[in-house]
Amino acid sequence: MVYCSGFFALLLIFLEWIRPGLPSPLRPICDMRVLNHFIEEARDAEAAMRFCKEECSVAVPLTVPLTSVDFAVWEKKNIEEQAQEVQAGLWLLNMAISSLSASITSSALHSHIDATIRNIASLKQVLRSLSIQDYVPTGGGTEETWRVSSASELFQVHINFLRGKVYLVLRNAPVCQQQIT
């Protein structure tokens, strides 16, 4: 009986130590090299798609976020509005790239598409680490969008979105500003 209760106590100590079911809070990821990695992979995908003509055309134009930034308007938005715009854009890009995936048959191109989808998921995790909430689409979306008709255009938008709005949100995230000072 003593052996059993000692084992039980040891088990409780171990379970308390690892705390199953209670995830540890994410540490903020403020290192811009992470974003640069995603940008480089997006460039690689865009380069691969650039030489693909017929196989990479899309039957129906894909909706993507606008990548241009009007700094006067952007600066007037609070960080939550900026973050929401980035999350909405990542959602649109993920939907467009997933749609493209369904129409591409080349396994080499699929590897770039799959990597891009994984990178968007990782980028969303980075944003969560900065306490930026996920985007939940609503019926009355206010995102500014446009349409692309080729894989190359889609990946060019992806690169520009990462280099523009995503960069601005990550650079100006309050938790990252606190670490700098």
Rank of each mutant, 00 (worst) to 15 (best):
M1G: 15
S5Q: 10
F8R: 02
F8W: 10
L12S: 03
F14L: 02
L15A: 04
E16C: 09
I18G: 01
R19Q: 15
L22I: 12
P25G: 07
L26W: 02
P28Q: 07
D31R: 03
R33C: 08
V34S: 08
V34K: 10
N36C: 06
F38L: 10
I39K: 10
E40L: 14
E40R: 14
E41N: 15
R43P: 06
A45F: 01
A45Q: 04
A45Y: 07
E46G: 09
E46F: 06
A48F: 03
K53G: 04
K53I: 12
K53E: 12
E54G: 13
E55C: 03
C56P: 01
S57K: 15
V58Q: 07
A59M: 14
S68P: 04
V69T: 10
A72K: 12
V73K: 12
W74G: 00
W74D: 00
W74M: 02
E75V: 13
E75F: 08
K77R: 12
K77M: 15
K77N: 11
K77G: 05
I79E: 04
I79H: 07
E80R: 11
E81A: 10
E81K: 11
A83G: 05
A83K: 01
A83L: 07
E85H: 07
Q87H: 01
W91V: 02
L92K: 08
L93I: 07
N94I: 02
M95A: 14
I97N: 03
I97R: 08
S98Q: 04
A102Q: 12
A102T: 12
A102S: 12
S103E: 15
S106E: 06
S107N: 09
A108L: 13
H110Y: 03
H110S: 01
H110G: 03
H112F: 12
D114F: 10
R118A: 14
N119E: 07
N119A: 10
I120P: 10
S122I: 02
S122G: 13
L123K: 08
L127R: 01
S129Q: 09
L130K: 08
L130C: 01
Q133H: 09
Q133K: 13
D134I: 07
V136R: 12
V136G: 06
G139I: 13
G139A: 15
G141F: 11
G141W: 05
E143R: 02
E144M: 13
E144Q: 14
T145S: 02
W146G: 04
R147K: 13
R147N: 13
S149Y: 08
S150D: 06
S152L: 00
E153R: 09
F155L: 03
V157E: 06
I159V: 14
I159F: 01
N160R: 13
N160T: 08
F161W: 10
F161K: 05
L162W: 04
R163G: 06
R163C: 06
G164S: 09
V166C: 03
V166N: 08
V166I: 11
Y167S: 09
L170D: 06
R171F: 11
A173E: 00
A173K: 00
V175I: 11
C176N: 07
Q179P: 03
